[in-house]
Write a protein that binds this DNA or RNA. Structure first.
Lengths: 214, 214
DNA sequence: CACTAATTGCCATACACGTTGTACTTTACC
DNA sequence: GGTAAAGTACAACGTGTATGGCAATTAGTG
């Protein structure tokens, strides 16, 4: 007895997986417009006709891929936040560690973020509903987790923070935008550069640029 | 005598202007791949054939448009920096004023920034040289101007800043990314939201989130 | 007004892509 | 091993697009 799932058509779900995985890779590589169904079929090692047996059309395929992938990433980020800000002894070190893991290009999510970068840029060309559900499943969810933990740190008096959501946003901006922004291109960032920018970002987040007495 | 430029073919340069302007609008609206020569011709009120009389192909048209527009924007930003950080009495107010003008959606540059957002996302699908020359003419140039002014403020002891280039990058990240990031979409930001985020960004930039004594 | 460069309309080529229909083959399961 | 569900190969349709050629037309300039 291998459970009730085994009695369901096995082949179908396997093919579906292959399609979703292949589609994410192709969308990541060439974008929505640049991706052809033929490319995706080849990448997934599946016939084009099979894709249309599983999905209504290119757009439905895309939104399915995006939603699945976004959720995976958000879950990972939530875990990251818990891991680093759950129990804090040295706040600055904890933030730096979190920052570095946040921006370090995770090979598992490489294609996902390529897709997301394009989506952000083209958000007005996709159906509102697709964009909305991506935001909810992905970035908003991760940001909420970060904001919630920061609010707790503020309650303990470790931070002064009138608007944790905005602070979380600023933290992410200081970390990610500055990493990407330095090169302005999607190059694979060097470990040393990540370290530099993460430390500087956290430092600014905590202390700012005004001279201090003592 | 109206000068030597008048003796040159007038029509040609006028048409060229129309093409460049129309192309920027269309590229801004639908992106590089989404834009067809027919669309651009219609928008510029010009025949498609004329476009090919002025430009080798779609790509050369695009890079010309991009370079011209980027330079226009960078010049404006350099002026902004001079205007607000040239003579500073109240640093925080000056930074807030600069921040607000920096992110306030300038209708003149709306299409430009739509193009740039897409370019950032797709930078690996454009020729390296196009991306490079855009960076140099646009964002790098603006960032350098900002960094230079900040360095001068640091010399005067108003700021503590080991790496002005990085600081400038962080400033821009705190201001722009947080404005956009709040909505995660290219909606037209409300004036009140701009004010909020600009103030908060500058505050973080100057003071950070650590509690202060006194 | 006449001349000439620039513009235009229209046609043509060549390709790529989304999507569908159909007839054939594979494969999980009884 | 047979059966039904799922997958595949192949071709086709319609559309959109970049680009080029050519003859007719326009509009600045002398």
């Amino acid at each position: 007895m291998t459970g009730p799932t085994t009695s369901a058509p096995r082949r179908r779900t396997q093919k579906r997986r292959a399609i979703l995985d292949g589609a994410l890779r192709v969308f990541g590589r060439v974008g929505y417009l640049g991706a052809s169904i033929d490319m995706i079929a080849a990448e997934a090692d599946v016939s084009t006709r099979t894709i249309y047996n599983h999905f209504e059309n290119k757009e439905e395929l895309f939104s399915t891929v995006l939603l699945e992938s976004s959720t995976r990433v958000a879950v990972t980020r939530e875990a990251l936040v818990e891991q680093h800000l759950g129990v804090v002894t040295d706040l600055e070190s904890a933030l730096i560690a979190l920052a570095k893991e946040w921006v370090r290009p995770n090979p598992d999510f490489e294609d996902h973020f390529r897709v997301v970068r394009r989506l952000r840029a083209e958000s007005d060309r996709f159906p509102r509903e697709v964009v909305r559900s991506w935001q909810e499943a992905g970035p908003f969810r991760a940001r909420r987790a970060l904001a919630a933990r920061m609010a707790l740190l503020a309650d303990r008096g470790l931070l002064v923070m009138p608007d944790p959501e905005l602070a979380a946003q600023q933290f992410m901006a200081l970390i990610t935008d500055a990493t990407i922004g330095r090169a302005e291109v999607s190059t694979t960032a060097l470990e040393s550069e990540i370290d530099r920018v993460a430390r500087a970002g956290v430092h600014t987040f905590l202390y700012g640029y005004l001279p201090r007495k003592g």
